[in-house]
Amino acid sequence: MTPSHTILNSLLDNDFYKFTMQHAVFKLFPKAQAKYEFINRGKHRFPAGFAEELRTSINKMATLHLTREEKQYLKDTCPYLDPTYLDFLQGYRYDPDEVSVSQNADNLSVKITGYWYRTILWEVPLMSLISELYYKLNHLSGDSDEQIIRTAKNKIEKYNALGVTIAEFGTRRRHAYHTHRLVVQALKQYGSKSFIGTSNVHMAMLNQTKPIGTHAHEWFMFHAAKYGFKTANGLSLEHWVNVYRGDLGIALSDTYTTDVFFSQFDKMFTKLFDGVRHDSGDPILFADKTIAHYKSKGINPLSKTIIFSDGLDYEKVVRIARHCQGKIGISFGIGTNFTNDVGLDPMNIVIKMTEAYPEGAYWTPVVKLSDVKGKYTGDPKMIELSKTILGINDSTQ
């Protein structure tokens, strides 16, 4: 097998919400621990020697560090990140011992364990490494550079014509770092009317555009482990507001179903947050629920924004935009359809937090109850417990 030499080029080659969450964890939960696990949803078969190649790439990540220029970029672009956090990040190094990798035949196992403020950065770069190595070691090269640029150009020009704003969210399942870089450059060059930024901080810096993101499901999942399911949404939002004081105001709504979220998204939170992010379930139904919720609180939905980010392509964006026009503000985060549209099947993989260890507590399984009927992830007993506590009945979801 030819050595892949797949490496990351920057500590900032990661999704922005990993750093914003890390900053909050660093401030609020410095002694908490977490476990994560790789889930091969697409049942992909990994070639012999894959785990060894991945291990080599992981070990090389220990040399990454925040450069002086990168630190200055974060200081200038993200004034809500504390100087103490930026100093910490400058001294941060990936610890490969936090990651275990093994392979049994064509099945891959990857697990992460350690302090949450450290392990929180592993998920996205590990997924991008797994994806890139998969194509390399299977000798699946995909489209030429010229075709990749042309594809991205054609897509963003269609979004320009549609009159919507688009961000690139595709780090996790990108075909390769090189592909990702070409795509973001093309979006920036040809998307003057639509392209507003990328979730990847490294790519944002390279292209002098905006890093975009707030928080992910794990933020809410940890809060359930520490405080219980009934108060997880409210305390997650309250702690976010306490850290960011009005910045980064898009709330993720579907960790424990949108219906439960909106029942706890009271008038204070509804006013404080700029909008919500849709990440599972029917986007049209979600839009209608969100509009109805704002109206019920006496708030004009046009003063708020929904960020749609669930498996989007042009046809889905058109359908959502037409439905929401004149009703509520909208924007779109498009991932794999941008960074892994090279003529090959994209991977269907995730890395999820599986357990949390709040300070003074014990290892507790964490779960996610998405808006897709029955599509819940985590320990089955904990899923049933959360459904009972939150009053979730699958037949009515």
Rank of each mutant, 00 (worst) to 15 (best):
P283A: 06
G170I: 02
T56W: 07
I291Y: 00
G163E: 06
N160S: 01
E146N: 09
K375S: 11
Q185W: 02
A62E: 15
K304A: 03
S131I: 03
K368Q: 11
K111D: 13
T67I: 11
E315N: 14
F222M: 12
R41C: 11
I306E: 00
V101Q: 02
P125A: 12
F220E: 13
M205C: 09
K193D: 15
L182P: 01
R322C: 05
K316D: 10
A176K: 04
S386Y: 12
F262G: 04
R93Q: 13
D247W: 05
T67K: 13
P211W: 02
A225H: 06
D82E: 15
Y73S: 03
K111T: 15
L126K: 09
Y92M: 13
D95S: 14
V99G: 06
T179A: 05
L302M: 14
I291H: 01
A32R: 02
L140G: 08
L140W: 09
F38D: 07
K193M: 10
L66W: 06
A62F: 06
I330M: 13
T354K: 01
F26P: 09
F338R: 10
T364A: 01
A32F: 05
M203G: 11
K230M: 11
I284G: 12
M1E: 00
L390R: 07
I156C: 03
A24Q: 05
N233F: 10
I148V: 13
H202N: 15
I149D: 02
A34Y: 08
M1T: 08
L312E: 03
P346D: 09
F195S: 08
K289C: 02
V201W: 06
S100L: 11
T290F: 00
K158F: 01
K289M: 12
R93F: 06
A321R: 08
D379T: 08
W219Q: 01
D274L: 12
E52L: 07
R45Q: 15
I349A: 06
T214G: 02
E37R: 15
K295S: 03
R45H: 15
H217C: 07
L89M: 10
P301Y: 05
F16I: 00
W363C: 02
T67P: 07
W363Q: 01
G197T: 05
S141D: 15
D15G: 08
K230W: 02
P346C: 08
G281F: 09
K193L: 15
E157K: 14
E315C: 01
P283V: 14
L12V: 03
M21L: 10
P283K: 05
Q325L: 10
L252T: 04
T20I: 08
A167D: 08
P301H: 04
K111P: 06
I334K: 04
A152H: 05
R277C: 12
E37W: 04
Y73L: 04
N337I: 03
H202G: 04
T119Q: 03
D95G: 05
K289W: 06
K210T: 15
I250N: 00
V366N: 02
L302E: 13
N340L: 11
